[in-house]
């Protein structure tokens, strides 16, 4: 593998791992705060799936890099600019509706991505995708069911769900951003070309929103930057909390 393609693969593994880690972390913030106990358990299950995925992916990223960094080195000792997660995943939980909107947007995208990755020529990516696609199918089902209930529930829930959708819409474009390095991986059959997902994503999300009697936002203005490590302010706070203990005792074993 050339130095360039190794770097590209490393970045991609980081991106997948960071998406899972940051979104899983956000969902874990719901623990003990859910709208009903059954939902606490559901959100934690999703968080656990994602944290599990992140461990596998960050370990793999460390392997590709070949400098001996572990999953924890990568999770706890990188700065916000070194994180590659999509902007959507780091957005704050907001209310339950906003959390559901984020999960719907992300899970539809993840379903597309994982279907492509299942065919990856990289055995680790393909193996990861085969496992994660089932987990994600449940996350998607959960998010879609809740979107229906909140959109077509009461006036208040409809208002909140619409607000959540509208507020997060501008962060969805970043999911489909590709870099030149990505295109190398695409041509090697290692990853799918996410820039081609957009139309199908919009169709699937619109179908759910429409069934939920919600309005699909019309704005075509999207935030971007995660591919270059330019994040929202929210990420540095999240990392400040997540990394605080590990960084206070560098080198300690836990």
């Amino acid at each position: 593998m050339s130095v360039n393609s190794q770097q590209a693969l490393f970045e991609y593994a980081l991106r997948l791992g960071d998406n899972a880690l940051i979104l899983g972390h956000r969902l874990s913030e719901w623990t003990a705060n859910g709208p009903i106990l059954e939902e606490d358990i559901a959100l934690t299950n999703i968080a656990l799936d994602l944290v599990g995925q992140s461990r596998m992916l960050l370990s793999y990223a460390g392997e590709i890099e070949g400098k001996g960094r572990t999953e924890d080195d990568l999770a706890y000792y990188r700065q916000s600019a070194e994180f590659r997660n999509a902007l959507l995943t780091e957005t704050d939980n907001g209310d339950f509706a906003q959390t559901i909107a984020r999960q719907l947007f992300y899970s539809v995208f993840a379903d597309q991505l994982l279907q492509g990755l299942q065919k990856s020529t990289d055995a680790t990516f393909a193996g990861y995708a085969a496992k994660a696609i089932k987990e994600n199918a449940y996350h998607l089902r959960h998010a879609a069911e809740w979107t229906l209930r909140l959109g077509d529930g009461t006036d208040e829930s409809k208002r909140r769900m619409q607000e959540g959708v509208d507020k997060l819409w501008m962060f969805t474009g970043d999911l489909f951003a590709t870099t030149e390095a990505d295109m190398q991986l695409v041509s090697a059959g290692i990853v799918p070309d996410v820039s081609t997902f957009r139309e199908a994503w919009l169709k699937r999300v619109s179908d759910v929103l429409t069934e939920a009697t919600l309005t699909v936002p019309e704005s075509n203005w999207f935030q971007s930057g995660s591919r270059n490590g330019i994040h929202t302010e929210a990420l540095s706070y999240l990392l400040g909390e997540m990394q605080s203990l590990a960084r206070a005792y560098p080198g300690a074993n836990w």
Binding site: I36, E38, I41, A42, N45, R141, H142, E145, R149
Partner: peptide
């Protein structure tokens, strides 16, 4: 489990009893 309808009842049962 408690659930508002049958689909959610299934999901909640899955999350609670098959962890």
């Amino acid at each position: 489990v408690h659930a508002p309808d049958k689909e959610m009842a299934l999901q909640n049962a899955r999350d609670l009893y098959t962890r």
